[in-house]
């Protein structure tokens, strides 16, 4: 077995040499910025394949090549409600070759609620792409037909109705807490694995209602009775659904999705990426595809969205404190 020892020793040598050569870091020089992009862009999708974020990015991918010199490669980093992917994005090299999807309020709530390795401002935001308002819906044919009945039942017996959410510390969770606060009621919160599970449990009659999104319920609207939508004015996709405000409950909430790069990415590079996104966003083909896939467009430049996010953070912190969910 002398051979074996020889091999082990040579391996160790290689290990030491390679460890030494790892020391030098990389910075982006002005030359790099000029040449950008030289190779394909990595696009981190922090949710599993086939989900809403993935569909959005796939639609962008199908149009990307005509508006940007280099390819886009989608990389899935699902896990822990998006936290795994957000962390990966925040920690990547800010050289313009990595971008990724971020969602609010996820990126606000996760650092507030538990120990994460990123903060809500660990990203340079490119643009918001989707603005999907939240809705409270029950199964079609349910006894409860209006928001008033829903609230009344809860006032009579607090906690007697269950509301399905896509997990803890998600948009659905925050909105439901806000709803409880605004309406002065208490529901039983049921955190589920995802929006597919939400729909399944609702249609199977295992939960009473879901706090979902416009995109979820418009996929097959006949299966639901949407009680209220959390917007300022009625939504064009759901013209018959009254808002919470109309019905006397002050609740406006949505899940926003967009693209960001790691903090510190050079401005010129961000502009190149932003321009490509803006062009794609204005294409009629993109609009058609988004609508068909049930994605509510809500384009907004990065700076504006970042401001909105810091405002939302203050709000969310208050609510979470009330329900003792701050870490």
């Amino acid at each position: 077995m002398k051979k074996a020892y020889f091999i082990v020793i040579s391996l160790i040598t290689v290990m030491i040499i390679s460890a030494c050569s790892q020391l030098g870091g990389t910075t982006v020089s002005s030359e790099d910025i000029e040449k950008y992009p030289e190779t394909e862009i990595r696009n981190i999708v922090p949710f599993s394949a086939g989900g809403t974020t993935d569909v959005n990015q796939r639609i962008i991918e199908s149009l990307w090549k005509e508006h940007f010199p280099e390819n886009m490669v989608i990389e899935y980093k699902p896990g822990a409600g998006g936290e795994v992917g957000f962390t990966e994005l925040a920690k990547s090299q800010p050289d313009g070759y990595t971008m990724g999807s971020i969602n609010t309020p996820h990126i606000i709530l996760q650092p507030l609620g538990r120990n994460t390795e990123f903060e809500h401002d660990s990203f340079d935001i490119l643009a918001r792409l989707v603005h999907d308002p939240q809705v409270l819906a029950v199964k079609a044919g349910n006894d409860i037909k209006t928001l008033d009945q829903f609230v009344k039942k809860l006032k009579e017996k607090p906690g007697s109705l269950s509301v399905g959410l896509t997990g803890t510390l998600t948009g659905d969770h925050l909105t439901t807490l806000k709803f409880m606060e605004a309406a002065g009621v208490k529901v039983t919160l049921v955190p589920l694995a995802g929006s597919a599970d939400q729909v399944k449990q609702l249609l199977g009659g295992h939960i009473d209602a879901i706090m979902g999104n416009v995109g979820d319920v418009t996929k097959d609207i006949e299966q639901y009775k949407v009680l209220a939508i959390a917007t300022e004015e009625r939504h064009e996709w759901l013209p018959d659904v009254p808002t919470f405000k109309e019905q006397g409950i002050d609740l406006v909430a949505a899940i926003d999705r967009g693209l960001a790069v790691p903090k510190g990415t050079p401005k010129e590079i961000k502009e190149k990426l932003f321009n490509a996104l803006k062009e794609i966003n204005n294409l009629p083909e993109y609009k058609k595809k988004m609508k068909k896939a049930g994605l509510v467009q809500g384009f907004m430049p990065g700076e504006e969205w970042a401001e909105l996010i810091s405002k939302q953070k203050a709000e969310a912190e208050e609510i979470l404190k009330k329900y003792d969910l701050i870490k």
Partner: peptide, 17 residues
């Protein structure tokens, strides 16, 4: 779930419809 994504990208709405 991945197939669902595929359906949506092709503009098809899964479900009874």
């Amino acid at each position: 779930a991945v197939l669902l994504g595929g359906l949506l990208i092709h503009g098809l709405k899964p479900g009874a419809k």
